[in-house]
Design a protein around this nucleic acid. Structure first.
Length: 112
DNA sequence: ACAGTGACTAATA
DNA sequence: GTATTAGCCACTG
C-alpha cells in the first residue's frame, strides 16, 4: 500500500457509492468517468475491494456495464450481493440486474 | 524493474 | 451474436 496517497481517488469512490440511493445501481465506468479516470473502470473495482475491506460501503450497488454481479465472488458470500439488492427492491436474475437501465444511477447527472 | 493479474469496457473478427 | 484482443491503471510476486 502506498500509505493512502491515492486516498483521493478511493475516497471519491466511497463517497459516490455511499450516495447511491437504495434500490438503485451504477456501473464502474460511470463512477470512473465521474472521478475523471474515464476508461479506468478497473480502478473503481479495485477501490471497491479496499472500500469493502476498510469501511461499510454498499458495494453491492455497483455492478458492471451489463448489470451482471461480477463482484459477488468477493463478498463474504456469493449470494450476499444478490440478496442485498433484492432486499432493496432490485430484481436480480441469473446474477444479472433486471431493468438495469431503469435502476441505473448516474452520479454525473443525478449528483450534479 | 519486469511480468502477471484483476469487481471493466469497447472494438474487432 | 459470440469470442477474442486490446487498452486501461494499480497491486503483488
Amino acid at each position: 500500500m502506498a500509505k493512502g496517497n491515492d486516498e483521493n481517488f478511493f475516497k471519491n469512490v466511497y463517497e459516490v457509492v455511499k450516495l447511491i440511493p437504495a434500490g438503485r445501481v451504477t456501473s464502474y465506468g460511470a463512477i470512473a468517468s465521474y472521478l475523471g479516470s474515464k476508461g479506468s473502470a478497473r480502478m473503481v473495482g479495485w477501490a471497491l475491494i479496499a472500500s469493502h475491506a476498510k469501511s461499510n460501503i454498499p458495494a453491492y450497488r455497483v455492478v458492471n456495464r451489463t448489470g451482471m454481479l461480477t463482484g459477488k465472488q468477493h463478498f463474504e458470500s456469493p449470494d450476499a450481493m444478490q440478496a442485498s439488492l433484492e432486499r432493496e427492491g432490485v430484481r436480480v436474475e441469473n446474477d444479472k440486474v433486471v431493468d438495469f437501465e431503469k435502476l441505473f444511477w448516474n452520479p454525473a447527472k443525478e449528483l450534479l
